[in-house]
Design a protein around this nucleic acid. Sequence first.
DNA 1: TCCTTTCATTCCATAATACGGAATGATGTT
DNA 2: AACATCATTCCGTATTATGGAATGAAAGGA
Lengths: 257, 257
Amino acid sequence: MAQVQSVERSLSILEYLADEPNGASIAQLSAEMGLAKSTIHRLLQTLMVRGYIQQDEQTGYYQLGVQCLTLASHFLGQLDIRSVAKENLKQLSQDAEEVVHLCILDQDEAVYIDKVESKQTLRMYSQVGKRAMLHCTGVGKALLIGYEASQWEQLAENKGFPKFTDTTITNLEQLKEEIGNIQAQGYAIDEQEHEKGIRCIAAPILDAEGKVVAAISIAGPIERMTKSRVQTDLVPVIRKQSQLISQKLGYRKGVEK
Amino acid sequence: MAQVQSVERSLSILEYLADEPNGASIAQLSAEMGLAKSTIHRLLQTLMVRGYIQQDEQTGYYQLGVQCLTLASHFLGQLDIRSVAKENLKQLSQDAEEVVHLCILDQDEAVYIDKVESKQTLRMYSQVGKRAMLHCTGVGKALLIGYEASQWEQLAENKGFPKFTDTTITNLEQLKEEIGNIQAQGYAIDEQEHEKGIRCIAAPILDAEGKVVAAISIAGPIERMTKSRVQTDLVPVIRKQSQLISQKLGYRKGVEK
DNA sequence: TCCTTTCATTCCATAATACGGAATGATGTT
DNA sequence: AACATCATTCCGTATTATGGAATGAAAGGA
């Protein structure tokens, strides 16, 4: 577990600033992290010279810098699931005429790595990079079918099941049952479990070894995403695209169980 | 100039990996950076525990991790030019029916921070986060009008003027003249200077102090972006939106010189 | 205007921390 | 099986990061 203290501290600073939309002062960081002001100052300088941090021109507060974005853009460029899935996402968004997402799993959370909006609803990047909990989102639950039973309990301990709406899953029993359903039917429904008024359908993507590596989803307001439309129109199209992507990744079995 | 060595080295590792789409081995990093393998190993561990680096499952090579994306998403959330300009970009893309970009300046380069495509040309994020040189792009030249003469020379020294096409500006004289034109007319044209077949028109965004803080552009293939269309249709619309955004940021003078 | 407070910044002596060389372990190649 | 090429661990050394104190700058109050 040998770690480099100063690097860890720098990362903590970055992560702290990520949660402070208005930035923070040296004094604040010093108090918050229990380090001397001189230490914080020196670390901030280092990060600032490289552009990972910048100072707000008005307030003088320190906040995240452009270089963070540059790294992310390279990260996305290196992600091959993204390029593999791109065409399928486009197709899916055309078929479904709703917003479509691609997510991967990271540390018991779903991370949105791509998004295609139907028509010209041109809100961009609104979600890419964002994280979501697993128990209350379509993609989250789809990703969960790759977990072992022991991992479910880990998840319950580490993250818990916060209640967002009156349909949110709030305990392990419900989750187990739900995962059973999803495995049986090959897709997951988010029945307004995270946000009232939003229904979502999601499906897992498997790689050559049958491992769950990603998930795709279609989401929209319940007015448009009626139960009948989901069942008759959307289930087929999302399953089709999830299978196609899985096949591109080398998955060979039919997704029918 | 006091800097933290280990942090600088970590950042260098991240930046090196950003340019290695397939990742790199410890040996390779060690050779490339002139550091002991044990040092690289320790730094990598630290970055990996936090998720900024991950190992390719097949090759074992180290590559950028998801956490980079997470930071970027927070960075973008904090950037207010982006939210300020969003509606105007949409409008512009509708008026122009071509792809529209928003860029900021960082370290003598243009960084794309938002993009709106017209219609359903759903290639997304293809540019956001990317960097471009200043001398050969519309947005770059638009951003350059905020430079002092001394900074032009700096730019020339630091970056040079690589030639991409036969219209690329390749020396300081040409650049000075071009900047004069842009200041006079309030917009910049990229006449296939970076990529053959792509014509682009760009305009600077100014803040309350009259400082150039960003630039917007319309780009497309010369077939559609004819000179007459640019002059009669696009110049007016891009100037209108750039002025509106500048006004939102507190800029008060008319953009007419 | 001057005093007070609250920041950020610089300086410096201390030792804790990061360092790299060498040894070991793991993998894969001929 | 021996070799080559990786990654990983260990450990003594001194370089490097540290935090306290002193200084400087800026903002707010009287």
